[in-house]
Nucleic acid binder design. Structure first.
Lengths: 248, 248
DNA sequence: CGGGGGGTTGATCTCCTTCAATCAACGTGG
DNA sequence: CCACGTTGATTGAAGGAGATCAACCCCCCG
């Protein structure tokens, strides 16, 4: 039961959908050829755990298609999501083989993997890989710090609005649209996953989504399909009106 | 009124207290010489804001001595600290000149600064700087994600214990001692700064510290001097007993 | 002596959690 | 094809952890 029949092991890097965003984005043709030699594809089904926290991880990888979550769990079961992995995002850390987080596939996924040793050698030899990885890591750090404000200081309603905002922005950039005016997208996460991301209970998530709907900030079709009639309004609700929503 | 009379502008990198931990840690002598040429020192007084969020920042820097905080503030005044800068930590991001956070000196500080352009050139030429920066950034990312669990899922009491644990560990490693058994250290932060770090109010911080004292988890001498009679107990209180505190 | 910054403690309130019932959609096997 | 279990979601009622508002203390410094 394969998650994806497109798993064919011989995708050309040149045709890769994440060619210009992933860790290989800056590579020239020679470097790409070297990467071609050590890469291999793996697919995962929705719901499958890709890596368990504490496990040995003998590869690093880029997300080609699909979505995964990065999360930490305490002994008593409390869970906090610490990252959302989307196409082009990188998994694993050069120089460390023990995974610090659980990585779980939210949807069916295709990943472009590199065995640890060859990849670490490439890191020292081809500066473009290391440069791009630094850039991506700095972006991740900014995102994590942004999220610390959400977790530490925002109300439940603001948290939900913040999450919707991020998903909407991300979806817009994926479809090369502007993040403003009216927007439509699907929620990739269950209420429980949202709760784990936001540091809330799933009941509170459900209640606040209902409240935002009643207040006309969003419209729902089914449980997952969201319409935001006025993106500026959503930004205000998130407490992020530093830009005043001028262009929204 | 200088914060530090040791501001003398001609400290040799070879004698620098952070020589083997900062962004220059991996540099060989030639590289160090190049850095010597573009570095300059600046000192800041306790309480002074080093950089305002949104401001142009024409330099990057390493903390040589002292402590600073990295924080975000919402329009209504809610503040979340997103990082604590200790000696050897790096400030600023290559490739971005607008500061995303406020940087505030908690104690008197000495910083080793590099103008943006020369430093960015070095980054492309000397792989050891870029390599070390990647390593440090990955560590920061781990710390930020660790903190997301604290902010999102821990109780006030666990949050305080987590903070004390981190400060104790950090102090131990600074004095090359083991983080176990009985430990003594000073709190570098006010109750308010702790609250901003933990996503709490200063009143809750005060109450929980009192509670931990009453329960014998910590002892206080004055407001800032802390004794932890049993580090393992503190780790349990933080909810982090994954290691069971075996050696504590 | 007055004042202010940092800290503690008390009383009250409120937002979110907890526990629980209910529902819709879906698949599965008799 | 319908009864049944399951999974994800919504909603209600009750309780509690932490916020808010406020008084007061300690200590240093001008």
């Amino acid at each position: 039961m394969q998650a994806s029949p497109t798993l064919s092991t011989s995708v050309e890097c040149g045709d890769c959908p994440i060619r210009h965003n992933a860790v290989c984005a800056r590579c020239d043709n020679d470097e790409l050829e070297a990467l071609e030699k050590i890469k291999y594809y793996r697919s995962f089904e929705a719901g499958q755990t890709i890596v368990w926290s504490g496990d040995e991880m003998d590869f690093v990888a880029s997300v080609v298609t699909g979505i995964a979550t990065l999360s930490q769990t305490m002994e008593d079961g409390r869970t906090q999501m610490v990252g959302l992995l989307l196409p082009s995002d990188f998994v694993g850390r050069p120089g460390r083989s023990i995974a610090p987080y659980d990585v779980v596939a939210v949807s069916d996924m295709l990943m472009c993997c590199f065995r640890r040793n060859p990849f670490e050698q490439m890191m020292t030899q081809t500066p473009h890989v290391a440069q791009r990885l630094l850039e991506m890591t700095l972006d991740e750090l900014d995102a994590a710090r942004e999220w610390m404000l959400v977790l530490g200081r925002k109300t439940a309603r603001e948290k939900i609005a913040s999450l919707l905002m991020i998903i909407a922005r991300r979806d817009a950039s994926l479809h090369l649209k502007e993040a403003s005016g009216a927007m439509v997208f699907d929620l990739p996460l269950t209420r429980e996953a949202m709760a784990d991301y936001l540091g809330l209970t799933l009941e509170t998530v459900s209640r606040q989504i209902s409240a935002l709907r009643k207040d006309g900030v969003i419209e729902l079709e089914g449980k997952r399909h969201v319409t935001v009639p006025n993106f500026g309004r959503l930004v205000e609700e998130a407490g992020d009106d530093s830009d005043g929503g001028v262009f929204a």
